[in-house]
Structure formats: C-alpha cells, structure tokens
Amino acid sequence: MIMHCVLVRFRSEVQAEEKQAIYDGIAALQSVIDGIVDVKAGPNVSPEGLDCGYMDGFVVTFENAGARDTYLDHPDHKAVGYKLVEAAAGGQSGILVFDWKV
C-alpha cells in the first residue's frame, strides 16, 4: 500500500467550509478512482508545536503505486488539486506531499 500524505498551509482567509469542500472533493475520488482504500482529512491537533505552519492535512491510502499514479493523472484529482493550490498560502509552496510504502 501507498500512503499519500498532504500537509497544507491554507491562506488565512480560507474558512472551514471551504476547507471541508476541498476535503469532500478528495474523499469523493474514492468512488471514481479504483484502488483508493481510505481517505482521512482534518486539522493538526499535535501539541508539539512542530507543524511549521502546516495546520491541516489529509492522507489517501492506495492499494499500490499504480493506483496512486492513476489518481495523480485523473482529471477529477487535477480539478480538486487546483482548488487546493488556490486555497494554499503561496499556492503550491503551501503544500507538502510525502508518500511512503507500507
């Protein structure tokens, strides 16, 4: 399996409803892209203070790297990804992606 972790620094004016709409769009991909096992999203709740400004994030779990690659190229992913980049502080520089094989 592949865990696709995305941390986000949203622009300060982005409201909770807009964040949730983005997360809902990501979760909806599970019904249209084969190989997505699970989607979880939400705010950082760590008390450590090591978030570097990434106060929100989501994890998409895939059956394998092929499913992840299909997701990355899928037009519905690109559409929700565009909304995420628009909402992130500094655009793409406000997003951190880390994938690992589990």
Rank of each mutant, 00 (worst) to 15 (best):
L96C: 09
F10P: 08
N64D: 14
L72A: 15
Y71A: 02
I36N: 00
A89M: 09
V8H: 00
D56V: 08
G90W: 03
D73I: 02
V85W: 03
K83V: 05
A21Q: 10
S31N: 15
M55F: 06
G42E: 02
M1Y: 02
G49V: 00
Q20P: 10
I33T: 05
T61S: 08
R11E: 14
R68G: 02
K40G: 00
E13M: 07
V60T: 04
Q20R: 15
Y54N: 04
A41S: 14
L7N: 07
D69T: 08
D99G: 08
G94I: 05
I2F: 00
L84G: 01
I2R: 00
V97C: 06
G35Q: 00
D56W: 12
V14E: 09
P75Y: 05
E18T: 13
H4K: 04
F58V: 06
F62T: 03
K101R: 14
I22P: 06
L7Y: 07
A89H: 12
M3K: 15
V97D: 08
A65R: 13
V39D: 01
L7C: 12
V85I: 15
D69V: 07
K19R: 15
Y71R: 03
P75M: 03
Y82H: 13
D73P: 01
L72C: 07
G91L: 09
G53P: 10
A65F: 04
P43E: 13
D56S: 14
I2N: 01
V85N: 03
K101M: 12
V37Y: 01
L50Y: 07
D51W: 04
K78L: 15
L72K: 13
A79H: 10
G91H: 02
D99H: 06
D24A: 14
A65Y: 07
L84Y: 07
L72E: 07
A88S: 15
S12K: 14
Y82G: 10
A89V: 07
R68C: 09
S12G: 11
Y71K: 01
F98A: 13
V14Q: 09
V85R: 11
F58A: 04
A65I: 12
L29T: 10
K40M: 09
I2W: 01
S12D: 15
G81W: 08
A88T: 05
F10I: 11
P75N: 00
K19P: 07
E13R: 11
Y71M: 00
D24L: 10
E18F: 01
D34L: 03
G25C: 09
M55Q: 13
K40F: 01
G42R: 07
V97S: 05
Q92P: 03
G35P: 00
D38M: 05
A21R: 13
S93F: 02
I36S: 00
D24T: 11
I26P: 05
H4L: 02
E17N: 10
D73S: 14
E86G: 04
V80T: 12
I95G: 01
F62E: 00
P75A: 06
A79D: 10
V102S: 13
V14K: 10
M3V: 11
A41N: 05
V6I: 13
H74F: 08
C5L: 09
H74T: 11
M3S: 14
A27M: 04
K83T: 08
A87L: 06
D76T: 06
V80A: 05
